[in-house]
Write a protein that binds this DNA or RNA. Sequence first.
DNA 1: GCGTCCAGGTCTACC
DNA 2: GGTAGACCTGGACGC
Length: 299
Amino acid sequence: MHTARIALEAPEPFSLWSTAWISGWGDLAPFYVDVKGRALTRILSLSSGDVVRSVWKQVDESRVEVRVESGRRLRSDEVMEAKAQVSGCLRLDEDYADFYALCSRSQHFRWVRRLAAGRLLRAPTVFEDVVKTICTTNCTWAFSRVMAASLCRALGASFDSGLRAFPTPSDVARTTVSRLSRDARTGYRSSYLVDLARRVLRGELALEDWRRSDRTTEQLRAEIQSVRGIGSYGTAYILNWVGRFECLTIDRWMRKKFYEKHCGGKAVSDDMIVEHYEKFGEWSGLFFWVDMTREWLAP
DNA sequence: GCGTCCAGGTCTACC
DNA sequence: GGTAGACCTGGACGC
């Protein structure tokens, strides 16, 4: 096994732990959280088709070290590709200065900067983010984990010792709805996933452009909603994932949490929830997120 | 052990 | 445009 080491400079404030934990994505294969060692493992697919294992660890306030393991010695451009993927997952290129400035001005949100919460771990590709979003709807989190792991096991390229990468659009497009249902346990979602992958391959959906699109959020929202299996909740989720935080990811769990936290357990309308965070403008969705998941970062 | 219900929604048919 | 019912399935819960 060959190993390459990558050093990533993190912006201030930054916490690998907060980033990995708060989004929930760190809990879904092919991400693996090492709670004890405070490290994150991720199986990465390179454009060459090779699959590598990467282990991410924060070594000090502003530095993340990534160990990349591969079956052969990687070329320097492949190491750079792995580095870019990790950086994209951690959203190191996004500017959160305004968000943290707003947090500092609010008594209720001062803790956010202290714990360096706010960055939400995402997948290396928008395709993976969309597939996983579909797999988090209408089911328990435990089942979402089963689906993510089964998708990798059934369709992902193999690394070693049973570890597999997340399937690419080609992997999913090549399979059948019945095989997905049987092997990936994605049930009625299977036709949505195959449909999505085939649209990507036909060039009808440029998913990967969503992260750097200069279109308005409303234009982007319309395209996201054209994906079968993605409704209003899923759209808000994906908009957050591509860096648009003006919409709130209100699902059953978040709704319940909001009622407990701000309404003494009494139910209120979604409009009331939106109104509660409206003052945070383009960051309202992120304020909602950190507010609801605050306890996840308890020691 | 077994049956029922619910869960980090969405789609479709129908009115 | 609003709403009811169907959709996969794992796990919690009550019996």
